[in-house]
Design a protein around this nucleic acid. Structure first.
Length: 322
DNA sequence: AAGTCGGGGCA
DNA sequence: TGCCCAGACTT
């Protein structure tokens, strides 16, 4: 049972629904579950979250990715508290930071039973197959939306929009899987034009993606006499915005020159390969032990909250010391 | 419409 | 190795 779902009979908590939907943006359920539990434990209500220091929230989000979500999460929580609660309309939800068309519909349907069909990747796939939409995405989006709206006219959807939406998610995550859908046992098989045409598994069609370029860089792991490591904070916006990182070079198509932050007995600890959405990064990790950290670096524990890329780099840099 | 923005799991 | 995931936001 998913921890953000309402127990039988009760209405789901809008705070839980909202938090889970933000975390679930482009993120699989299994990854979200432990983060959701830690957030609810530390911030039992949206007011607790709104009152928390930014760094605490970013730290608890570290590793989950798409850090703009965490920044918008804070802003949204404070807006909700200032307004006295979550808005119960699509327009009101859509106006909040971090809530787009999908998330507004999801919260509206699940938390407030508004008669809408949230279109995420799962529903997009289910609708494209049921309607046999062969127009490739993103051009086929409007056509898919019409099929989804038609699904929303179903009696089950009208009776319980929230349950219907979550049932569509479950269908897309199980039977109507991306690669090999289980059409023979699907409850929609008789109404699925994609299955009737024998093309269900090929839908939805998508435009070809551009190849992923490679960038190179170097980071420097310094450990002082107390065992602390030297970190700095990234700019508030952009990639890994607002998160802590190891000091290092810019990341470029060719390995940039790497002047270390101070004189030390540097050793090459290896290369971390990390794949982002639109480029691949090969990050060389240089490590050294020094008496004291240089100016501009913050002393942090080796297990300080970090993005996964930086966690991998720290792990690699420390590993060579033993 | 296209680009930016993480991370992990799976065939 | 490529694709996918309960997408939002900027340009």
């Amino acid at each position: 049972m998913l921890p953000w779902r309402a127990t039988d009979g009760g209405r789901p908590d809008p705070y839980h629904v909202w938090l889970s939907e933000i975390m679930l943006q482009q993120t699989v359920v299994a990854t979200v579950i432990p983060y959701f539990g830690r957030f609810i434990e530390r911030y039992p209500t949206v007011a607790d979250l709104a009152a928390a220091p930014d760094d605490d929230v970013l730290g608890l989000w570290a590793g989950l990715g798409y850090y703009a979500r965490a920044r918008n999460l804070i802003a949204c929580a404070r807006a909700v508290v200032a307004a006295g609660g979550f808005p119960a309309t699509i327009d009101g939800l859509r106006a909040l930071p971090g809530i787009g068309a999908y998330t507004a519909a999801a919260i509206g349907a699940i938390a407030f039973d508004l008669p809408v069909v949230p279109i995420d990747g799962n529903v997009e796939r289910v609708a494209a197959r049921i309607g046999a939409v062969t127009t490739a995405l993103p051009a086929g989006k409007a056509e898919i939306a019409r099929v989804a709206a038609w699904l929303g006219e179903h009696a089950a959807a009208r009776a319980a929009p929230g349950d219907f939406a979550q049932a569509l998610f479950d269908l897309g995550a199980s039977l109507c899987a991306p690669r090999s859908p289980s059409c023979l046992v699907c409850p929609w098989r008789g109404d699925c034009a994609g299955h009737a045409a024998g093309i269900a598994a090929t839908l939805p069609r998508k435009a070809a993606r551009a190849p992923r370029p490679v960038r190179f860089g170097t980071v420097f792991l310094l450990r002082d006499a107390d065992g602390a490591i030297g970190l700095r904070r990234r700019p508030p916006k952009g990639l890994l915005g607002g998160m802590m990182e190891l000091p290092g070079t810019v990341w470029e198509a060719a390995m940039p020159d790497a002047p270390p932050p101070m004189r030390a007995a540097w050793r090459d600890a290896g290369v971390v390969v990390h794949v982002f959405t639109h480029f691949e990064l090969r990050l060389r990790v240089m490590a050294a032990e020094v008496a004291a950290l240089p100016e501009g670096l913050v002393a942090a524990a080796v297990d300080a909250p970090l993005p996964s890329l930086m966690r991998k780099a720290v792990s690699m840099g420390l590993g060579g010391l033993d």
